[in-house]
Amino acid sequence: MIKGRFINHQASDHVVQGHELAERLPALIADSKRVASSIQHGVHGRHKNGPGENFWQFRPFTAGEPANLIDWRRSGRDHKLYVREREWEAARTFWFWVDLSPSMFYVSDLATAAKIDRAIVITLALAHSLVEAGERVGLIGLTPPIASRQVMDRFAENFVLSGKEGKAPDLLSAPLPRRNEVILVSDFLIPVEEMDKTLSRLSSQGAKGHLLIIRDPVEETLPFEGQAILFEQEKQISLQVGDIAVWRQNYLEALAAFKKALEQTAQNYYWQTIEHHTDRPASEAALTMLTRFGTSGSLSGDNP
C-alpha cells in the first residue's frame, strides 16, 4: 500500500522544523555538490557579444557595419571579411525564493526525497553552478547578491533560519532591481489568483523569471485505494473519504485545470514554468533550468 508522510507533523513547531532542516542539510549539501558536478557540462558561459576583454569568436562581416570592426589579419587569410567579437562580461544577478511552508515537507513512498529537500538541493546546485559561471546569486529577503564559492553554505544557513521561523520571506516585501532574474521554487499549491498577484507585483518591478514546480508523484496520480484520510497540512484540516477511487477522476481533472491555469498565469507575465517530480533525479530539473538561463532572451544582455 502506498503511504505518505510529512517530515514535520507539527506545522506550528517552527523550531523543530528548523532543527530538522539543520540535521539534514549536510547531506543535502553533499547531494547538491553531486548534482552541480553532474551538470557542469550544462553550465552556460556568458558567450554573448558585448563589451569585454576576452575574445569570443570571429564572424563574417555584415554589409552596413562600421569598417573599424573588421579584423584585417583574420580577413586576409582567406580573402573574406571577418569581425572579432568579444565576450559579454557583465555579471548577471539571479534571485531565488524557496517555499518553506508545511506542504513542502510531504514525501510519499513513490518519491526519493521530500519536496523541501529536493527544492533545496536544486537551488543550491543552481546557485553554485551560476557562481562558477561568473554570475551573482541571492536569496530574496535574506541575502544580498553574492559571487562566493561558499554560496551553498551561505544559502543553507539562511534556509535553517527561515525554517525556524516557519516560512520563507515575503516575496513582495523585498524590492528587486530591474531586469534581474527570479526563480521561485515551490509546489505552488495555492489559489491561482494569489499567484497572479505575486507575479504582477514582481513583474511591475521589471523582474522576469521561472516557476520551478516541485511535486510528489502521489500528488500527480492519487494512487490510493479504499478508505483514506486526506490531510491539509497548511490549515490542519482532515477529510475521511469512503472510497478514494471514486474521487480520483474528478481530482485528476481538477489538477489538470489548475496546472493549465497556473501555466497560463505565468505566461501572461512572460514567466516560464518547469515541473519536477520527486521520483526523478534532481539533475534533470537543474540542467533544464541552466539551459533556460542560457537561452532566455531576458538573460542575453540584448534587452534594453
Rank of each mutant, 00 (worst) to 15 (best):
W247R: 08
N268G: 14
A254E: 07
Q227D: 13
T265V: 02
N49F: 15
D187C: 04
L212I: 02
V107R: 09
L172A: 10
W247A: 12
M1Y: 10
R215P: 09
I237E: 06
S298A: 12
R77N: 12
S283D: 07
A282M: 02
T143E: 01
T278I: 00
R46I: 11
Q40V: 14
A111L: 01
V192W: 03
S186Q: 03
L252C: 03
P102N: 00
T62V: 12
H14P: 15
F188M: 02
K259M: 10
Q272C: 12
M152R: 04
K80S: 14
L172F: 05
A27F: 11
K48W: 10
Q17S: 14
Q57N: 11
R215M: 09
S12G: 14
R24V: 11
T265D: 04
M289E: 09
L110V: 09
P102Y: 00
P281L: 03
V185G: 06
K48L: 15
K80D: 13
L139V: 00
K33V: 14
R59W: 02
S203L: 02
V246I: 10
S296Q: 03
L28Y: 00
A207F: 04
W97Y: 04
N303F: 13
S103G: 04
M1D: 15
P144N: 10
S37W: 09
T273H: 01
M289V: 10
S200L: 06
L299W: 07
L176A: 09
D117L: 07
E275W: 03
E132A: 15
D153S: 13
I116V: 10
R154W: 08
D71Q: 01
N8Y: 05
D302H: 11
T93W: 01
P191N: 01
V151C: 11
Q150V: 06
L110N: 11
A127I: 07
L69F: 06
V98I: 06
D187N: 06
T291W: 08
L262G: 09
L100H: 07
L222P: 05
A30C: 13
E263G: 14
V246N: 13
Q249W: 01
F105A: 12
G209H: 00
D99I: 01
L139S: 05
S12V: 13
P175M: 02
V121T: 06
S37A: 15
F96C: 05
Q205M: 09
A286W: 01
L212A: 07
Q205G: 06
I29W: 05
F231P: 10
R136Y: 04
G209Q: 00
A282V: 04
Q249Y: 04
G18N: 02
I213Y: 09
Y106Q: 03
A257I: 09
F94D: 11
L239W: 05
I7R: 10
G242N: 07
P144F: 05
K164S: 14
E65P: 13
T198K: 03
A11L: 08
D279G: 02
E263S: 15
T62I: 13
E275A: 12
I29D: 08
R77T: 12
K33N: 15
P145K: 05
